[in-house]
Every structure is written in C-alpha cells, then in structure tokens.
C-alpha cells in the first residue's frame, strides 16, 4: 500500500466516521467515569468504571512489562494450537463425512450428541485426562473451533450443485479429480467461513478456560494468558488492568480474524468481485 492510498483510506468517509465514533465513545466514557468529580453524582454503570485516561496510564505502565506480553503470547499460542488442530482435523473429517455415506452414518450421530456440549463443560474432564494443563486448555480451545468447522465444511460439501459433479464427470474427471478439483474448491468458501467463526469462538473459549483453570501450568502470573491476566487483575483489585486485559483481547481477536479474512480472500479470489 502506497502512502497515498494509505492516506486516502485513513481519511475516507467511512474511516473518519469510525474514528469519530470511537472518540465520542471515549469522551462519554471519560465524563461518565468522572461524573462524581464533575457533577457531584455518580452516573449508573459508567460511574463505577475506571476512566479511560487512567486505563491508558495503567496500560502505558504495562507496555514495558514482559509479563504482560507473555500473557499475549500464551493466549496466542493456545488459540493457534487449538485452532490449527481444529482446521487440520475438522476439514478432512467434514469432507470425508460429506463424500462417504457409510462414514457419515457412523460418525454423524455421535458428532451430533457431542456437539451441544459447550467446550467449557469439558474443562474439568480435560484437566483430568490431559497430562498437562497446557494441553487441556489447548484441547478445550480446539473443541471451540472444531464443531463449527466440521459443520460448515459438511454443509458446504453437501450442498454442492450436483451439475458441477455431472459436468466434471462428463468431461472425463476421475473420482480423485472430482474430489480435488470440484468438491474441495466448491467447499472452500464454507471452509473459510467456518474457520472465521471458529476463530472467534476460540478466543471466547481460551479466555474462559484460562480463568477457570487458573492460568495453566506455570501457575498464574506470567504464564497465565490474557484470560488469567484479567482474572488476576480482578483478584488483585486493579480495575484499570481488567479493562486493559479486555481491550487487549479485543485487539488480539481482531488481528486473528483479520489474518483469516486476508487468507480467506487469497484462497477464494473468485468471490472478491461479488
């Protein structure tokens, strides 16, 4: 991106509206949080929240702290371990269920019974049967993305226009060609959607799992991840840090989704122009 297009993007109407909305939101938050000093009475909700200025001050102090970045790092590792495992297992499983009736008949019922169990309900069990806490958190994270990916892939592969298959067959495509050149690319948009949704769930799950499990193997503090960071801030009574942790998760989730969006757009170039 050239500097010029960057400027154009930055000052486009849409971007300006977005920035304006954030600025207005921060001002309202600041005024609301300081309402007791300014107006002499507390505005409900906002009056109980630390003002953004002190949140930023607290954040500024944390920027230089390795333990804060360690929390980012731990959550990212867990999210991506679980997510990549879900992609690697979920996509082939979904595709295979879609193309093989026997396997579908065998696997789908148990899949449908397991699917409604929320990933977080697995936390205690997985702490018991995985050797390390790290693995149990990654496993729960994996479950968060796994079901969504499988369901999307399965749905996408099953709803392929039958005429694509017939056309390919007429033109002499083998079974393997049909799988590789028709079924797989036809399912790619659903794979991308399923992965993007799965990634969102992954962040929800990892944060909760870190809170419940007490931050993983290194027992809290530095090794705990962003979820544990929030929990520890709450226990330690630092309300500014709670909000720093929340915003950090928002940013981390945004970057993960953006990464997937870019990758998805690159994998499905034919959808761009619609």
């Amino acid at each position: 991106m050239s500097l010029r297009t960057f400027k154009e993007n930055l000052f486009s109407k849409g971007a300006l509206r977005g920035i304006a909305a954030i600025v207005i939101f921060v001002i309202i938050w600041e005024v609301g949080a300081r309402s007791e000093q300014i107006f002499g009475f507390r505005v409900p909700f906002l009056g109980l929240v630390p003002p953004p200025s002190s949140v930023f001050v607290s954040w500024g102090g944390l920027i230089g702290e390795p333990s804060y970045w360690q929390s980012w790092y731990m959550s990212f590792v867990r999210v991506f371990t679980g997510f990549i495992a879900a992609v690697l297992i979920g996509i082939p499983l979904g595709l295979f269920m879609a193309v093989n009736k026997t396997f579908y008949g065998m696997a789908f019922p148990s899949f449908e019974v397991l699917r409604p169990i929320p990933p977080l309900a697995w936390v205690p069990a997985s702490i018991i049967f995985w050797p390390t806490q790290e693995m149990s958190i990654a496993f729960v994270t994996f479950l968060g993305a796994f079901y969504t990916i499988v369901i999307n892939v399965l749905g996408g592969a099953k709803s392929i226009n039958k005429q694509f298959l017939q056309a390919a067959q007429s033109m002499g495509a083998s079974q393997w060609d049909i799988f590789r050149r028709i079924i797989f690319p036809a399912t790619l948009p659903s794979i991308v959607v399923g992965s993007a949704v799965g990634m969102g769930i992954t962040w929800e799950v990892v944060v909760a799992a870190e809170m419940i499990s007490g931050g993983g193997s290194s027992g809290g503090g530095a090794g705990g991840g962003l979820g544990f960071f929030i929990w520890a801030s709450y226990v330690g009574g630092s309300y500014e840090q709670i909000i720093v942790g929340m915003i950090s998760i928002g940013i981390a989730g945004y970057f993960s989704s953006e990464l997937l969006r870019q990758l998805g757009g690159y994998l499905t170039p034919w959808l761009k122009t619609r």
Partner: peptide, 30 residues
C-alpha cells in the same frame, strides 16, 4: 457419462472457482 456427450445446463455449470480460460481447458486437462 462421456466427453462425446456434453450437457449445457439450464442454470449453467461453469465452475465459479476457475477462470473462464481454466473452465474451457478443463475437459482436455482431464
């Protein structure tokens, strides 16, 4: 089914993930 009898479908069955050229090349490539 065979390449001696090719169907042109009512709603079209070009593969959306292939460019027009790749679509046209599909049969001989197979």
């Amino acid at each position: 089914p065979g390449s001696d009898r090719i169907v042109v479908f009512q709603n079209g069955a070009l593969f959306p993930w292939k460019t027009n050229l790749e679509n046209i090349a599909f049969g001989p490539m197979m």
